[in-house]
């Protein structure tokens, strides 16, 4: 008997009588949801900026990144920033100073933004870039992860990730340091 059969037969023999799955009904509130999201994200080291259009967004992006490599997957920004051929080796993205990517939605309780592979250009991009900007519509903020997974439903991504703030570590004496391996800074743009 190979290990698969051995493990499965032992599991079948030993598992206890069936226990039902519980309902997932939790409280949530959409009051001041954008403020709540901002407060939480700022607390975990991120930043939030409200913008009313692509021009304003672009102007805000470039102030801090003049003559640096900026990469985006947002069509509205491609004319202003340029396009990248994402069929190339992901290692070549290492010198990206700023990646500007669209998020699907954000979560107020934890400051996270949901993003899936088709929005990333290359799957390495949100993690290898030095700084990350995520853009969502202001109305796309959900109260908790419970609503987030209702929204995600059975959508068919290949890779999906919640990103909440910049990469960080507190492994050295519990001192919080931003920029462990991933992005050193994260800005979420809320498009009005």
């Amino acid at each position: 008997m190979d290990s698969r059969e051995k493990i499965l037969s032992q599991v079948r023999k030993n598992q206890p009588g069936v226990a039902m799955l519980p309902d997932l009904n939790f409280s949530s509130s959409s009051d001041n949801i954008a403020e709540k999201f901002s407060t939480v994200l700022v607390n975990i080291g991120g930043a939030v900026l409200e913008v009313s259009g692509w021009d304003e967004l672009h102007a805000s992006l470039v102030t801090n990144f003049t003559n640096k490599r900026i990469v985006t997957t947002i069509p509205e920004l491609n004319q202003r920033i340029g396009t990248v051929d994402f069929r190339q080796d992901p290692h070549l993205l290492e010198n990206v100073a700023l990646a500007v990517l669209p998020g699907k939605f954000a979560v107020a309780e934890n400051g996270a933004v949901w993003i899936t592979d088709e929005m990333m250009g290359d799957r390495a991009l949100p993690f290898i870039c030095e700084n990350l900007a995520l853009v969502i519509r202001k109305q796309d903020i959900l109260p908790t992860l419970n609503e987030a997974y209702q929204q995600i439903g059975m959508s068919s991504y290949n890779l999906g990730t919640f990103i909440a703030g910049p990469s960080k570590t507190a492994d050295i004496e519990q001192s919080l340091v931003l920029g462990a391996h991933g992005a050193k800074s994260l800005v979420v743009y809320l498009m009005k």
Binding site: I44, L145, N158, L159, A164
Partner: peptide
């Protein structure tokens, strides 16, 4: 409130 990255690996690159 959550870890910075919660990645859902479904299909390989």
């Amino acid at each position: 409130p959550i870890t910075t990255y919660s990645s859902h690996f479904k299909k390989p690159r």
